[in-house]
Every structure is written in structure tokens, then in C-alpha cells.
Design a protein around this nucleic acid. Structure first.
Lengths: 298, 298
DNA sequence: GGAATCGTGGAATGAATATTCTATTCTTCA
DNA sequence: TGAAGAATAGAATATTCATTCCACGATTCC
């Protein structure tokens, strides 16, 4: 990095007026947060980016960071000078020092997970418990979900005109999130079971060109099971996510996944299910994009 | 870093003869140690320096490192090329990546993932990516959520008569799941923003004896932000979950948590958020149970 | 409402950078 | 010993870099 000659000391005093130049990352973060309200538009944009992507600042070049943050390189320099630094490079040193000081040792991780500060407080152990359970759940699906089955599920859903999402109660947030993602990805979908009463009408529109994704964990919501059955009888291919090979959903499904969320104190979170749902959603969208590309080629 | 045109492929094959180019720091370290004995004098000098001062390699320039290691800059380039890299810069990336990935346990998981069957199929890599991202997210919250803040949040919500849940769009599944869990746990709650139009009426019922939990990630839904502001102005304590210190939610919140979900290919799942939400929900319910017990004793 | 200050975008600039090239020194084996 | 090859040092080069500068909008303040 260029180490230019120092600026005129007299001019320096103009900028470093009120507070001292921060010497470490925490100090810098504090000052940025303190002044964030008074910062001009672009500088605030840089501030937000810097605190959200400190690693990028540490390693990137002014040009690359500027592109990522959607700002001019000169804005980065102005930002640094605004906080009393000589230029962008000296600001960058703070971000680099932050990475240097961190001990990337095995010990730290171990302490963070088992014996960290959280366990000192009463609620802390609950927090730790759920984080650990989520880790276990993820380890679980990585091994229990068969790649071939996943591939088949993606193909089924990618070929569908409309994807019907069936989920109730505990599973509902999963389909809710998929609905959100499908919407963003421009994949046509239809949620089943939002408003009471009209479900049958919605399901009546489903045909063999469509597909469905059903989620239900024990104790299985009878509605979801029945709706999956109904769809299967109408030749709509069903992909399902459930927690047991004996799930009533399995019989109605062309492909189904067994996903057991690890629990903490009897409560299960949805961490692994969410990762699975997102993977499936994106994989389907990606597959569709590729199909569309191939068709455009012809 | 200068990205020159590729070298002559024929000349390339001279260098990258036997083994593949290492992709991570551990692999590089192994190869260096393996070949260290056969290395020429200056290259061995560089090898020793590199393994002893990895941070210097990560942050320094070729010139500065060369001076420290008492070597010519060109020697660094030759060293990098000796191990199959295109130049010094690409070797440096390895050292930088090492600092970026703060979690040592994560490396193993990633390698375990990329080595399993999933990577053979096209959709498999997407699946792996999201599982890995979820792991990273969980590692993140374990260190970024302060136990004291968590404790305060639990206290606020446990003392509330009714808990108002504020979330839109991407965050909606989180509050949806909390609503489900609160219902099972017999904690009085009220979702905000389900049916259009009546939100203001619902919020009008909230008072200082209640509390709110708001979730919003960038790009922040203006509705959520406004509703949190409104609640705060009505003396309703607000606990919030968001992804940046710059989140507009932070201003209105008594306690707020910064939780950045790791992304895969630009898509973020909700795995860590779900674990957090569940931990908070159960911790609140647990706290309430204890309060109720204490009152019963009197 | 006009002047003045501040913030911004974008091109210009020279310093610094990684890399290549070549002359020289050091090994190695006949 | 002496030639052939590898390894090295150091200058040369093209590129990239952070920074500066200036013109143009946007605010703010009389």
C-alpha cells in the first residue's frame, strides 16, 4: 500500500478536530455508530458497508470495495479522512489489525461452544442448547438426505407449472419462507391452507402438470395428510419433508425426505428444515433457469 | 492485485507437474513441509518465513515481505510458481482466506461436505452450500449474541402481558414460528401485520405493560420499522432482531441483536434466526414459569 | 431567492506494485 | 577441472493502486 508523505500538519488539525483518531476496531465502530446519524448519504453508505463487511475492507482494494459498496473510490478516501485518518490505507490498517489479533485457534471455538459466557447466565444455557441442537440437526441432514433423492425432487418441482405448498402449524413457517423465496425467484406457487374454507377450491385446480411440496412433522396435521393424499390421487406428484419413515405423508409422495430436527429440552427449532427448504427452493429455481436457457437456444 | 494474462500453458505444465495446486492453507502447509528438504536455499528461506509469519504474507506486499524475509521480490514469485500458483498474488489469497475463515471446526465440516456424495450431482452442491452456510451462521450467533443482552431481552419479554410480534416478508416465518411456540407454551402474544388494515387497531392496544419483538433484515420493510417506532413512542419496550448496527430498528429498541445469516450464492436461509427465535421463545416461557412459581409460593 | 458551503462523481496523476527478463553466481556431474 | 544447468539478484516494465483535483448538484443559511 502506498505510504505517501504526511499531509501538512496544519491542514490535519482541521479534520481531527473533536475526537481522537480511533486506534482499534472497537473504537472505530463506536465512533461510526455515534456519528452515523449526522453522516452524509454516501458516507453513511460506506459506514454501513464497512461494519457489515469488515473482512472485505481488510483485504479488498479501494476500487473493489468501492464497487461492492456501490460508491466511488474517492468516497472511501473521504470517509477515512472524515474520521481523521490520513487516507483510506490507514483506515484499512484498523480492519487488518482486527484480523491479526484474532486467535483463530481450536481452543477458542471449543470455548465458544461449550463453556462460553452464555452458560454463566441462566438463559444462556438455553441459548447454547439450541445452537448446539441446530448444529446437530445440520450434521444430520448432510448425511441423511440422499443426493439422488434430492435431485429427483428438484426435477419434479422444476418441471411443474405451479408448485403447491402444503404445510400447517409447526411446518407453516417453512412453506411461508419458500413462498417468499419463490416469489422473488419468479417461480409460480400456490400456498394451501392460508384462508380457511377455500382450500378445496385451490386444490381442485391442481393437475398432473403441477407438483406439490408438503411438510409435516409428528404429530401430523391431518389436514396436510389428507390434502397430500388428495393431490396424489389427482396425479399431482408430491415431494414431502417429514420426520419419519412411517409418516402418513410418505405413502402419497413420489419423493420424501426424512429430517429429524435435534431437540433441546424437548423443543425443536427449524434450523435444518430451513436450510433444506432454501436449498430445495434455490435448486429448483436454478434448474428452471437452465431449462429456460436450453429452450431459448433452440 | 495485477491480474496478468495467463502464462503459456506449455510452460505451466513444467511447474504444476506432480501434485495439484493447494486450495487451502492446510493443504499448502502440508505440501511445503513435504518438499521443504528438496527446496533450494532461497526458496526454503521463503518457506520457513511463510509458515512462521502467515499474517505477514496475508497483509504485506511482495516488496515488504521480501525485505522482511531477506529475499528478492522475484524470489517470492518463483516460490509461488514453484507450487503451481500463477504468481505471488494467487498464493497470497490462500493466506488471506485463512484469516477470513475464523472457525477452525468449520473447515473440517466443509471438507467433509464437499467430499461426500452430494457434490457429485449438480443440485448437490447447492444443498451442500446451504448446509455449510447454516453452520457458519450458527457459529456466528454463538459469538455475536451477548449473553447479557439475551438475558435482558428475556426479562423484558417475560414481564410483558402480551408480546407483540412484528415481522414482514423474509422475517415473517420467524415470527410465525414464535407465534406457534408461544401458543403451545401458553404465552399471550399478538401478531402484527397478518391481515391488512387492522394493524393500527392492534397496535393501539399495546401499552407499557406489554412488550414487542420485531424482526427485520435488510432491505428493511418500512412497515415493520414504522410499527416498531410507534410502539417505542407508546412506551412499549421493543426487542429486535436485525442484521446490521445501522438497522433503523435499532433506534426504537431497548435491546437489539445483530445476526448476519451467512449466504450461499447470494441467498440466505433462516437457520440461525430460527435457532435464536426458538431459544428466545423457550427462555421467555421458562422465565415466566419461574416467576409464576415464585408468586405461588407467597 | 441568492450566495455559500458541503457533498458527490469521475477523470487525471504519479507512486507503488507484481511480474518478467537477463546477466551473474552457484551446483553438479563428467 | 570445466562445462551445463539451475538458482539467484536486480533492473525493467506494464499494470494497478490510492489519492487528488475539479466541475457539478444539492443543501443550508442569510
Amino acid at each position: 500500500m502506498p505510504q505517501r508523505q504526511k499531509r501538512d500538519p496544519l491542514k490535519m488539525s482541521e479534520t481531527e478536530n473533536s475526537t481522537a483518531i480511533p486506534q482499534d476496531f472497537d473504537g472505530l465502530k463506536a465512533i461510526i455508530l455515534e456519528r452515523k446519524a449526522q453522516l452524509p448519504k454516501r458516507l453513511r453508505q460506506v459506514a454501513a458497508y464497512a461494519l457489515d463487511n469488515p473482512d472485505e475492507i481488510a483485504f479488498g482494494t479501494a476500487a473493489s470495495i468501492a464497487t461492492s459498496a456501490d460508491v466511488q473510490p474517492s468516497t472511501l478516501v473521504r470517509f477515512a479522512q472524515h474520521f481523521g485518518f490520513e487516507g483510506f490505507s490507514s483506515l484499512q490498517q484498523i480492519f487488518r489489525a482486527r484480523l491479526r489479533e484474532r486467535t483463530p485457534g481450536y481452543d477458542e471455538r471449543l470455548r465458544a461452544l461449550s463453556g462460553n459466557d452464555h452458560s454463566k447466565l441462566e438463559s444462556g444455557s438455553i441459548f447454547n442448547g439450541f445452537v448446539a441442537a441446530a448444529h446437530r440437526s445440520l450434521d444430520n441432514i448432510a448425511s441423511s438426505v440422499e443426493p439422488e433423492a434430492f435431485e429427483r425432487a428438484v426435477n419434479i418441482l422444476a418441471d411443474a407449472e405451479t408448485i403447491y405448498l402444503v404445510a400447517k402449524r409447526r411446518s407453516y413457517p417453512i412453506s411461508g419462507y419458500m413462498a417468499y423465496a419463490f416469489g422473488k425467484l419468479k417461480v409460480r406457487y400456490q400456498m394451501v391452507g392460508t384462508a380457511a374454507g377455500i382450500d378445496d377450491d385451490i386444490l381442485a385446480m391442481a393437475g398432473s402438470k403441477d407438483a406439490a411440496f408438503a411438510v409435516s412433522f409428528s404429530p401430523y396435521a391431518s389436514e396436510s395428510v389428507n390434502q397430500a393424499k388428495l393431490l396424489a390421487s389427482r396425479k399431482v406428484p408430491v415431494v414431502s419433508l417429514t420426520d419419519s419413515a412411517f409418516s402418513p405423508l410418505a405413502e402419497s409422495s413420489k419423493v420424501w425426505f426424512e429430517l429429524v430436527e435435534a431437540d433441546h429440552a424437548g423443543f425443536r427449532s427449524l434450523s435444518a428444515s430451513m436450510a433444506f427448504a432454501m436449498a430445495l427452493t434455490v435448486a429448483v429455481a436454478e434448474k428452471r433457469r437452465r431449462i429456460a436457457e436450453e429452450q431459448a437456444m433452440e
